[in-house]
């Protein structure tokens, strides 16, 4: 899709609360708010507000089946919002629920401070205590690991055998976590404006990717898995994942275009296109096929904290911190 045409087709939303997270449920963009509500934005331009938490939603994830959202609140609750509109309480406690993540194989994990809860959807969770408060949770695409970004490294937990854990060590505070598409590498973002990577099978093989002017808290892999896209710089920085050691010992490539720091990145499924959200509020579409590039939403001064594609790659969405959001039907990838 040509960025110029795309820009004209974006549906814009403006909500009365700060946006904190977003996720797709089918072709509907769900936007979580600092007021505890989720707004469901549909492709017809309508939006529906559902109040869930007494306080802010700190994190949100949609399940693999695409029939439910999990919302983590600073009221101490984790809630499940079904596509049918049913709301259920999954967890009630006194401490904030900081993070939530869903696996491709039907697991859901959430954390309150140092305590990680891991469950098959609909079942009772097991509890795992992390060495420090958890900053982020993510499952590997192959479902083999649940990763938690903590102080001093990444804690990996086997979802099927939670007593099996692995600690990937690197000094410092880790604030975001993800896995390569083949599940062989774990990557974290750090407080020191860098990324760290471990080869999970041989964690003594690891490397630091530094030099970012801002925290590269957002990163994703191209659909073919051959490169990792990273935010945190005023250019799009990509790292190769072609050799047996991934980017360890390799150099990054950079793609210029856009103004200011990249705040969020996401690769489109079954495609070579990339959505880039900027700290200044602009959103750009970049196509690696011909390196074409263009803004689909203009900068409005508020950081684009997340950019997303629907699982089928048809819909694109973005949210800004100030409570604005955009939704775009790009057609089949």
């Amino acid at each position: 899709m040509d960025p110029f045409d795309a820009a004209g087709a974006v549906l814009h939303y403006r909500f009365e609360a700060q946006a904190t997270a977003c996720a797709f449920i089918g072709s509907v963009l769900a936007v979580a708010g600092g007021d505890g509500a989720v707004r469901l934005c549909a492709v017809d331009g309508s939006s529906k507000k559902i109040s869930l938490h007494d306080g802010a939603i700190l994190s949100m994830a949609s399940n693999a089946k695409g029939d439910a959202l999990y919302t983590a609140g600073d009221d101490g609750n984790l809630k499940r919002l079904g596509a049918d509109g049913a709301i259920s309480d999954i967890h009630t406690g006194r401490k904030w629920v900081d993070c939530v993540s869903c696996s491709q194989r039907g697991h859901v994990a959430w954390s309150c401070g140092k305590t990680i809860y891991l469950a098959k959807e609909g079942e009772e969770p097991v509890e795992i205590t992390a060495p420090s408060s958890v900053s982020a949770l993510a499952f590997s695409p192959d479902g083999k690991w649940l990763g938690a970004a903590v102080y001093g490294g990444a804690l990996l937990i086997s979802p099927n055998k939670p007593e099996t854990t692995k600690f990937l060590e690197w000094k410092g505070s880790h604030v975001a976590i993800g896995f390569s598409t083949d599940g062989r590498f774990c990557v974290t973002a750090m407080l020191e404006n860098s990324l760290h990577i471990w080869k999970i099978a041989t964690p003594e093989k690891h490397g630091n990717m530094g030099g970012y002017p801002a925290k590269p808290v957002s990163f994703d892999w191209m659909a073919d898995g051959r490169s990792m896209l990273t935010a945190g710089a005023d250019v799009l920085v990509t790292w190769p994942f072609t050799g047996s050691d991934g980017p360890i010992g390799q150099n990054a490539a950079v793609f210029e275009g856009g103004v200011g720091i990249v705040r969020s990145v996401r690769a489109r499924p079954s495609s070579r296109q990339v959505l880039i959200g900027y700290a200044a509020g602009g959103v750009a579409l970049f196509d690696r096929k011909d390196d074409s590039y263009g803004y689909i939403a203009e900068a409005d001064g508020s950081p684009v904290i997340d950019v997303r594609f629907s699982p089928d790659g048809r819909m694109a969405g973005f949210i800004r911190e100030n409570g604005t959001a955009g939704l775009l039907d790009m057609g089949k990838p």
Binding site: G34, A56, I57, W96, S132, S133, S173, L191
Partner: peptide, 30 residues
């Protein structure tokens, strides 16, 4: 009160990790 050392070679560069997490959370509220 989680005290985190920065990984920048400076042993006096310590921060309150829990405070970063909580302040970031509070900033999300209306």
């Amino acid at each position: 009160e989680e005290i985190f050392e920065m990984n920048n070679g400076c042993i006096c560069c310590t921060v309150r990790g829990d405070l970063i997490r909580i302040l970031a959370g509070l900033m999300k509220r209306t």
